[in-house]
Design a protein around this nucleic acid. Structure first.
Lengths: 151, 151
DNA sequence: ATAGGATTTCAAGTGCACTTGAAGTCAAGC
DNA sequence: GCTTGACTTCAAGTGCACTTGAAATCCTAT
């Protein structure tokens, strides 16, 4: 059988720090089995899972969202190529949304800021179609900013 | 003369919370003068500045980077349309970089994850051209992940 | 047998971009 | 005069995605 990986090996193969891998496991994004001594052993398909996490983060997704997405993979067997391809397809759509948003922002840079008639209040570019996002504290990157100005 | 704005008015006109506006001022991103009573009064061009901050954040820039960018505006006079248009041009270029990166990620989703031959170690998509970014703790969104795996 | 590296857990710290709360001052309407 | 709301400062808290450090254990090589 294929040898499972130690956390150090997984770190080297994915470029993700061991501390991050432990964190991902704690958050339920990846799994491991333990040796009698309590050391983690990661099955080789975990590499791909971690790779996906890295990709998705760079697209701008939170670990929360990524967990939800990974949950769509089969649990009772090793995900095959088609499973990953299916996930990838929905993510491509998400990336396209991001790209579309960036295009809008680019236009808005001319329409709202570059020009003289700035009216950010009703600017369709700055707040494209009110994505429902987490409001509240913390970075709000990519989050639609709704009417939360105050009162 | 044009009436300056109270912090509440600026908040309403930009959709940014007063607490955030105070934070931006503290961080040197915007400025105000004070009334005899110590209340802030914002000149009207500040609206545009705040709008730019909101845009730039949605593109994925940190306040640090935005401050640097805003520093390119003239300090001794109210920025005119050409000043803003100049800033906007460089930002359009940045947005295009982001879009290009997203396109690469989209390809990588097929090349690295969707297909069967995953080799994240030397994946050109996951780590396109090693942007020098802050490494270390904190979210690393959009940051090039360099060889920081561990020894 | 022992040194050195890899691993474990757990608690606490970090950076960013804010928000929240307390305690007080100021301004406008009744 | 009094309430109401907007404003002030300052300290502390929040959410995310981790990292760092301490103290202990495990594995490997000499």
């Amino acid at each position: 059988m294929f040898e499972p990986l130690t956390i150090g090996e997984l770190a080297r193969r994915t470029g993700v720090a061991t501390s991050a891998l432990r964190f991902y496991e704690e958050q339920g994004l990846i799994q491991s089995v333990r040796t009698p001594a309590g050391h983690r052993r990661f099955a080789r398909p975990v590499i791909r899972r971690v790779a996906f996490i890295v990709f998705a983060q760079r697209v701008g997704m939170s670990l929360q969202e990524i967990r939800t997405e990974l949950a769509r993979l089969p649990e009772n067997r090793v995900p095959n190529q088609e499973d990953w391809a299916r996930l990838s397809r929905t993510w491509k759509a998400r990336i396209d949304e991001r790209i579309a948003e960036l295009e809008r922002l680019k236009d808005g840079l001319t329409g709202c800021i570059g020009c003289g008639c700035l009216s950010i209040e009703r600017c369709r570019f700055a707040n494209p179609h009110d994505r429902a996002g987490k409001l509240g504290p913390g970075p709000r990157f990519w989050m639609g900013r709704t009417q939360e100005s105050e009162s």
